[in-house]
Amino acid sequence: MNANLSRPSRSSSATRSAAQGFTLLEMIVVLVIIGLIMGLVGPRLFNQADKAKVQTAETQVKMLKGALETMRLDTGRYPTQEEGLALLVEQPTDAKLSQRWKGPYLDDGLPDDPWGNAYQYSPKSSGTHAFALFSLGADGKTGGDGYDADVGMLPQQ
């Protein structure tokens, strides 16, 4: 009985060689396949992410517009250029305006656009709207095309 314990069996040597891992060739084949899949699927995923950022910016502009309209009903006016969107979350220093201000008008503070930039506000008319409120898009600059285009209620040119 002790003699059988000291001899390795065939099944244990087969298990030992199978557990040693993959060959370099197998690893290269797997990496090439993953690379091909990412080359085909990756651009589509990034395109969807860019599209989602534009939709998020459009939604946030509508939310900010609603907050500005609510504040205007309370205070009787929109923020000035100097006050900007900060008036939605910070009580005004003007005593008369401060009495009518019922804010903050945003629960979670003033959001940045999906690209990490501040939303642009101007009390000047933007066509059918009493003010301009927009994101500068992915490039953070005025104008642009595609995902770099400005998003929101743009000022009249």
Rank of each mutant, 00 (worst) to 15 (best):
Q157M: 01
G66E: 03
T80S: 15
S122Y: 06
Q60Y: 13
D107S: 14
L40Y: 08
V30K: 01
D107F: 10
G127Y: 03
K141N: 09
L5E: 00
K102M: 02
F134P: 03
G152T: 07
P8R: 07
M1N: 13
N4F: 14
D50G: 07
V41E: 03
L45A: 11
L5I: 08
L136D: 06
S9C: 14
D113L: 04
Q48R: 12
L5W: 08
E69N: 15
L25G: 05
K65N: 10
P123Y: 10
A132D: 07
N47G: 12
E82K: 13
M153Y: 13
K141V: 04
L85M: 14
V61Y: 00
Y78G: 13
G35M: 03
S17T: 06
P123R: 02
S125C: 06
D74K: 12
V29C: 01
D94H: 00
P43K: 03
R7A: 12
V61M: 00
D139K: 09
D139Y: 13
G144F: 05
A149E: 06
T80C: 08
G152D: 02
A3G: 01
G76F: 07
D150R: 09
E26W: 10
I28N: 00
T56V: 08
R72S: 15
G140A: 05
G21A: 15
A52I: 10
P79Y: 04
S125F: 13
L24D: 00
A149I: 05
P111Y: 10
T56A: 06
R7N: 13
G39H: 07
G84K: 10
D148A: 15
E26C: 04
A67H: 01
N4V: 11
K51G: 04
S125A: 15
T128D: 14
P79H: 04
K96T: 13
E26A: 10
K96M: 06
F22C: 03
V89F: 12
A52G: 08
K141P: 05
M27R: 07
G127T: 05
F134Y: 14
K51L: 11
G35V: 04
Q55H: 09
Q99L: 12
G109C: 09
G140R: 00
